[in-house]
Design a protein around this nucleic acid. Structure first.
Lengths: 147, 147
DNA sequence: TACGAGGTTCGTGTTACACGAAGTCAAGGG
DNA sequence: CCCTTGACTTCGTGTAACACGAACCTCGTA
């Protein structure tokens, strides 16, 4: 026997706040069909249940890996099509996981560079009269964030 | 007494390969004035010396923090203007360091999500007959990459 | 009955390029 | 000497993923 209980439904506004994205973006995604389980109320207002929130979260994460709207849509369609598409989905995920790994490395390097720059400026401010104004003092050692 | 030695100069093509960006992008950046020390040869060809490479590297890293071309240009101008702009430059760098930190966290979360998805698919492939084709099985526990 | 919050379509603007066209110019090889 | 290659230029279109405004409709509520 299933327990029947009313699921909490969220409006566009609420969802926007929950995920820190704009209402524009939410409409954009729903209009693109990225959230198949989206519900509309009798006044045609978009409503999100837990399932549609899950889809949205998945979209946000995969987009974070660099997946395009187009690929996101494709992936979603594969999910809906069932078991036969398992391998293709697996391959897509592998691909974007690899991209995510690279992105992480890149993010680390870039942060290192920024931290280094901050330290550099703080050294100057703390009395070291090293003139950073001349771009020729942008030395390799300070700048190189790619190796 | 300075040792006079010919500095190695790089063409657009070489630079593109070195940094993994396109020639289009390099022309775009130079045309925007992001690389002040850029040299032209007698045939008007762009040539990069170590100093211009340093500027380019800086641009690539700061852009990686999310800095726009406009801000990059502004920052470059500040550098050229000298010591008086130190504080403003410092503040810019602080701002983008903070963004870089957030980006790193985001990259970590996104990668975790992707790894988790991969494992999920591998579990299915390795005989666990859990049907992922139904989007209702996209459970919170699997998807949540934001917390 | 006025307000606020939602909806719609239409259309422009933005960023950071990618890419092609068309024409020029200079160096190097057969 | 010609041909190819690879620069350069300007001009212009296309793209992604939105942001945003205009104008207009439609609820429910105070």
């Amino acid at each position: 026997m299933k327990t029947i209980q009313k699921e909490k439904l969220y409006t566009v506004q609420e969802v926007a706040q929950m995920y820190g994205i704009t209402k524009h973006t939410i409409r954009f995604y729903t209009d693109k069909g990225l959230i198949p389980p989206l519900i509309r109320d009798e006044n045609n207002n978009r409503l999100f249940n837990q399932e549609s929130l899950n889809w949205l979260e998945g979209c946000i994460c995969l987009k974070g890996c660099g997946m395009s709207i187009k690929d996101l849509k494709h992936y979603g369609n594969l999910c809906l099509q069932g078991e036969s598409t398992l391998k293709e989905r697996y391959e897509m995920i592998i691909k974007y996981r690899d991209i995510a790994r690279e992105n992480l490395l890149k993010a680390q390097r870039v942060l290192e560079y920024a931290e280094c720059k901050v330290k550099h400026y703080e050294d100057i401010i703390n009395g070291l009269t090293y003139d950073n104004s001349n771009p020729s003092t942008w030395k390799q050692s300070e700048l190189d964030c790619r190796k």
